[in-house]
Amino acid sequence: MSILAIQNLYVSFLENTVVKNVSMDIEEKKVTAIMGPSGCGKTTVLRSVNRMHELSAHASVTGKVLLRGEDLYALDAILVRRRIGMVFQRPNPFPTMSIYDNVVAGYLLNGLRLGKPELDNLVEESLSSAALWDEVKDSLRRRGAFLSGGQQQRLCIARALAMRPEILLLDEPTSALDPKATASIEELLVQLKKTVTILLVTHNIAQASRVSDFTAFMYLGELVEFGASAKMFTAPQDKRTEEYLTGKFG
């Protein structure tokens, strides 16, 4: 069943249109990957889902993004971001906070008050979901900066999961990590789709084929092809997809 519908989305910054007429239906509790060469607009599509693109000056959007039929652009951006979590390219835990506080940062920073036992549960549950609990359970009060890059990225995933998001957006979450940390994150994503819908941007074709159920291929701002990964990676319909998959460009 589709949880998120992107309909005729155009995004431009000043005169420069970087996303052109993209329409996609994202299935619930599946991993959907958006791949494509640098500058193809895949990150912009992702950021327009939780409206992070609005941070850039002169951004304008036409088209619709619907979460369970609800127009996200009719809501307050802050509420949208609480329902849709995001993980970035470079791990970005809050450097002044402990691991514990980082996980529940969404509550602390928003002034949402929870009891201590509730917070404790949330921390354990989120860190466990992010496959980090065993590694950090004895150092929850230490700052997150001493963790390795892969651990920091999982901490960021835990932080997003703690808000119990309906969708988790990941923007090239492994591009700053070594192969081993990358493998653990990919494994984690496959686990996570049992509970949350995942939209993943990657420029790594192999990664898309390894973890995703559906794949979208974007090129020069357009959605070239979108469908089940199994099919796209074996029998691409569009010539450009085939050329990208076989390494003729990108």
């Binding site: 941070l55 971001r81 970035f88 835990p93 809050f94 969404g106 920073l109 928003n110 932080r159 808000m163």
Partner: peptide, 19 residues
């Protein structure tokens, strides 16, 4: 201070002034 940090807070739905 890296922009990523600000984005991290905003992406959690934290209002600008609190960020």
């Amino acid at each position: 201070i890296p922009l990523e940090l600000k984005e991290a807070a905003l992406a959690l739905g934290v209002p600008y002034y609190r960020t």
